[in-house]
């Protein structure tokens, strides 16, 4: 995709300036319709997204709601430094990264595979029913999901009961109480809840693939696996890449509610993530600035990662989201 940079303030010598300006106006005139539409989008986003961004400044002040910013003390990077001085900060960064990475690998691939498998179903009615059912867990709140998981995986839950009955183990496994199981448990729960929902976009992307390509593939002697690999997958590649790049940007968001609901004191060393920490040290303690500062840091890293990944993607695959 050849990107065209726009010159808002063309610089150069006076003589070429006017001709450049002329060119620019000509160009803008040609694009007037598009700019007319764009103007609405720009005004809208200026009001609803960019104007409120002044709130970011609060992260650099000791802000108390109700006070004017001029009355608040400027503290610079105090809250950023404080974050890194929190006890266990490296532990929570580790947990955040591990949980996110699991979500970005296993959790990312699962809906793609599911969409591919949906695509291989012959019976359309069956396909529609399975698709619909697969997205149901999205509608069940985490509280309910957690309570179901507890009743399944508890010491007296169905799973332990089965394992003991069939003689695999003789003492119940503390799936919930032991930290080492937590990451796996969380990833499984995330997938359970989200895989059907996330597959929707891939299902729609698959529908876009030209049927003629499959016919041509059949002529070339491609089997079903070959078609999935050589036609379907490349066909949804833009969507996959897009979601992956965006996902990389969200690497510091490792979930919040599920940690609070599935975690217990014995799993703390595994479940505590940046968001749960900031919630307690910022919002619950009424330290608005601290929460803002950490949020800003997360956004900054997120956007930087998106830009870097996007650059790499552009180099490697010639696809870019910007």
């Amino acid at each position: 995709m050849p990107g065209i940079r726009i010159n808002i303030r063309p610089e150069g010598e006076a003589t070429t300036k006017s001709s450049k300006l002329n060119k620019l106006f000509k160009r803008l005139y040609r694009e007037k319709e598009l700019w007319f539409i764009a103007a609405f989008a720009i005004v809208w986003i200026a009001i609803f997204a960019y104007y409120p961004m002044y709130g970011i400044i609060y992260g650099f002040f000791n802000y108390v709601p109700g006070k004017k910013l001029s009355e608040c003390e400027f503290v610079g990077l105090k809250y950023f430094i404080e974050f890194f001085k929190l006890p266990d900060v490296w532990l929570i960064i580790r947990n955040t990264l591990v949980i996110s990475t699991l979500n970005l690998t296993i959790g990312f691939i699962a809906p793609i595979i599911l969409a591919l498998l949906f695509n291989e179903l012959n019976n359309i009615t069956f396909k529609r029913i399975v698709q619909t059912i697969s997205y149901l867990p999205h509608f069940v709140s985490w509280v309910v999901v957690a309570s179901i998981i507890f009743s399944m995986l508890g010491n007296e839950g169905v799973v332990n009961d089965m394992l003991i009955r069939f003689g695999f183990i003789d003492k119940p496994i503390g799936f919930l109480g032991e930290g080492k199981y937590f990451w796996g448990l969380l990833t499984a729960a995330n997938i359970w809840k989200g895989v059907g929902w996330s597959s929707i976009i891939y299902v729609s992307a698959i529908a876009r693939i030209d049927q003629e390509l499959y016919q041509a593939g059949a002529v070339d002697g491609l089997g079903r696996l070959g078609m999935a690999w050589h036609i379907t997958l490349p066909g949804i590649r833009p969507t996959i890449l897009l979601l992956f790049i965006l996902g990389i940007g969200g690497i510091l968001n490792a979930g919040f509610e599920q940690q609070l609901l599935l975690g217990s004191p014995t799993t703390r060393e595994y479940h505590e993530v940046i968001d749960t920490y900031v919630y307690r040290y910022g919002i619950q303690m009424g330290r608005y600035s601290f929460a803002t500062a950490v949020g800003f840091m997360k956004s900054f890293i997120g956007l930087a990662l998106v830009i870097v990944t996007n650059k790499m993607s552009k180099k490697l695959t010639d696809m870019s989201i910007i």
């Binding site: 726009i6 986003i45 609803f48 956004s299 998106v306």
Partner: peptide, 30 residues
């Protein structure tokens, strides 16, 4: 639209908002 010069600018303008926001209080006041 490939020949549209504001293409990247608008995309970037929107992508930034996916990551940065002013928080609840400024938005409420808005």
């Amino acid at each position: 639209v490939r020949w549209f010069s504001g293409r990247r600018f608008i995309r970037l303008l929107y992508i930034i908002t996916m990551y940065f926001s002013g928080g609840m209080i400024p938005f409420y006041l808005l």
